[in-house]
Amino acid sequence: MGWYVPVMALAALGLALVGATYAIGLLVTVQRRPLVTPPFLAGGLPREHAVSRFHVRWYVVTLLFLAFDMEMVFMYPWAVVVAEVGVEAVVEMFTFLAVLLAGVVYVWREGGLRWT
C-alpha cells in the first residue's frame, strides 16, 4: 500500500490542477455562461442526434486484438524469468506466439484487416 500513497497524492494533485484551470477560466473569461449550440456541421444543422448506433467496420480486428491481448498476461511475467528458466522458456513462448501469429495471418488472408 505504501507504494500507492504518492500515486494517489499525484492523482489528487492532477485533478486539483484541472480544477484550478477551470477556476481561472471562470475568473478571467468574458462570458461565464457557456454557449449551448448544435454541433458544428460545416454550417449545417444536424438532422438527427449524432450519438446513434455507430457501425464500426473494424470489429473483426477487435476480436483479433482481444485474443492476442490475452497473451500479455503471460508475457510480462515471462520476461523476468527467462534468464533463470533458460532455453525452454524462449522456445515455449515463441511457439505460443507463432501459433497466435498464424491466427493473424489467417485473419489477414480473410480480409479482416480491411474495412471499406
Partner: peptide, 11 residues
Amino acid sequence: LLVRQRRTTFR
C-alpha cells in the same frame, strides 16, 4: 482559451 466562453453542444 481561458478568456473565451466555454461551449457545450445540444444534449
